[in-house]
């Protein structure tokens, strides 16, 4: 059989549960992806290669050398030039070709712009690297009644959960409140392997395809996958009637005035990021940061660290001063990545 651009999707449409009907639905679909780094890169590549109609994605970071082992859309030259991830990803995805309309935003995403960026998108996908953003996505998904896929990776594995608001459990049915800052390990402190990223992101992309093509058939379960220990687990958890999001319909992450999270201290080349109203255990934070920071000092009521080339001062109330920038996106990126 000769192949032509017209039978590009032959092999996936031969997969009966997907079929030509699935392909047609996929080509009509619009997807929003938050983050184009590790998870986001694999998810974006899967959807573009599969032929999704439109992919809107946003990322606030720039490519650095430590990204290259696991962020499949980037190359040495992007790290050498510190190219914004959104632009580098756009370039890589355009080279794949196919019918997908791509829309890249090199911007910090928060409650102020998420609604607008994701307007018209049928499914919301998680390629982010922090909990704040995931609780924000969950709020938006439940409030606007759109499915989303939670994905998180650390070390050798991670979690995936496809969520159909008001049909199955949401993130806050399982984890009603995010744990206080400093509780969870991050990829900057505990490390992460490419195969872990690939497994988690591929599973998430599979669930995204399923939600777009066959929403009613999508398994609404929490899945844990571990590419190091070779383990898979699924947990079928019911909706929680008292869930703050899908039960009580409160959306604090979406409705919090996040634009007030930061204050630029003019003339000092410093941005102040407010805490989240939870006391931080500075000793625990210092231990956790020891691996990610080039220098960590505990000084009475505060902690000082050198993170990503910025001097950072963290107070017990969660407030932080990020020096060496007046850009709130840069400051929030550092805060959410290391201190949240």
């Amino acid at each position: 059989m000769t192949t032509t651009p017209d039978n590009r999707f032959d092999r996936q449409t031969r997969f009966a549960p997907f079929g030509t009907a699935g392909q047609a639905k996929l080509e009509q679909a619009s997807v929003f992806l938050l983050g184009a780094g590790a998870l986001g890169g694999v998810i974006a590549q899967s959807l573009v290669r599969s032929g999704v109609g439109r992919l809107v994605f946003a990322d606030r970071d720039s490519v650095d050398w430590t990204n290259l082992p696991r962020q499949v859309l980037f190359e040495d030259r992007h790290a050498a030039a510190s190219t914004p991830k959104a632009w580098a990803a756009l370039e890589a995805l355009e080279r794949i070709g196919g019918p997908t309309r791509l829309e890249a935003h090199a911007t910090h995403v928060d409650a102020d712009n998420l609604v607008e960026l994701s307007a018209g998108c049928d499914v919301l996908l998680d390629g982010s690297d922090n909990l704040e953003t995931r609780y924000l996505l969950n709020d938006l998904a439940v409030k606007s009644d759109r499915p989303w896929v939670y994905a998180g990776v650390i070390g050798g594995g991670g979690l995936v959960m496809p969520i159909r608001p008001n049909v199955g459990p949401c993130l806050r049915c399982l984890f009603p409140e995010p744990p206080p800052p400093g509780t969870l390990e991050t990829c900057d402190t505990s490390g992460v392997l490419m195969p872990a990223v690939g497994s988690v992101a591929s599973l998430a992309a599979g669930m995204a395809l399923r939600l777009l093509v066959d929403p009613a058939g999508t398994p609404l379960r929490l899945m844990e996958i571990d590419a190091w220990h070779g383990e898979l687990r699924t947990l079928s958890i019911p909706r929680h009637p008292e869930c703050p999001a899908c039960g009580k319909r409160t959306f604090p992450f979406l409705e919090a005035p996040l634009s007030e999270r930061t204050l630029t201290l003019c003339g000092r080349n410093t941005v102040q990021v407010r805490g989240q109203g939870v006391e931080v255990d500075l000793d625990a934070m210092a231990r956790r940061l020891a691996q990610a920071a080039s220098r960590v000092e505990r000084l009475g009521p505060l902690l000082r660290a050198e993170l990503d080339g910025h001097r950072v001062t963290l107070f017990r109330d969660g407030r932080a001063l990020i020096e060496g920038t007046e850009d709130r996106g840069t400051a929030l990126a550092i805060y959410d990545r290391f201190l949240a």
Partner: peptide
């Protein structure tokens, strides 16, 4: 007992 810990990395 089945326990799952929230994962924040990405």
């Amino acid at each position: 007992v089945e326990m799952v810990s929230l994962v924040g990395g990405g």
